[in-house]
Amino acid sequence: MKSEFAFIALPISALIAPSAFAVQYLTVDQAQRAIFPRKSFTAAPVNLTSVQRKAIERASGVRVLRDEQQVWRVSGGGWFIVDEVVGKHEFITYAVGLNADGSVKQIEVMDYRETYGGEIRNEKWRAQFVGKTSKSPLKLDSDIKNISGATLSCRHVTDGVKRLLAFYEVALKR
């Protein structure tokens, strides 16, 4: 017997629709509980001075785009930080839990959004799709839960964590 492996092509309308792939994994509250179960949190936002910003940039080699940083102090020691990074194709909100000694306890992606512009506005490029859709188009499942394809790098988040570790040294450590 042959395998049931079948490819279901999406209709043209799905290709021309605005392009976005987004998942919300955790709210701030959920991320706090995921990284520090059974702890309490005290908001302790930080506004960086330009001296601090430069010190962080020098130490991490990563640019600081915002002076305000969302930080919570964790009961019993440790820090919970929410941060955002923007890449060429992605916009990611993530949370980092730091142990009392400043080491990384856990990283959780909270919001993941991929956005793409340009390619579909190009009429010539778009014309390639015409007449090439499936004969049995399926209703587009707007909730794409899993996508397989070329790998998107997590470099921006890795750089963001590097920046937050320098932020800890400059603004939180005492």
Binding site: S19, Y116, I147, L152
Partner: peptide, 20 residues
């Protein structure tokens, strides 16, 4: 069974289709 979307090879913000 789970539906897994496959990225469009030239426009990866879109799904070209899916596989069960």
């Amino acid at each position: 069974p789970q539906l897994i979307h496959v990225r469009h090879p030239a426009a990866p913000g879109r799904a070209a289709g899916m596989v069960r």
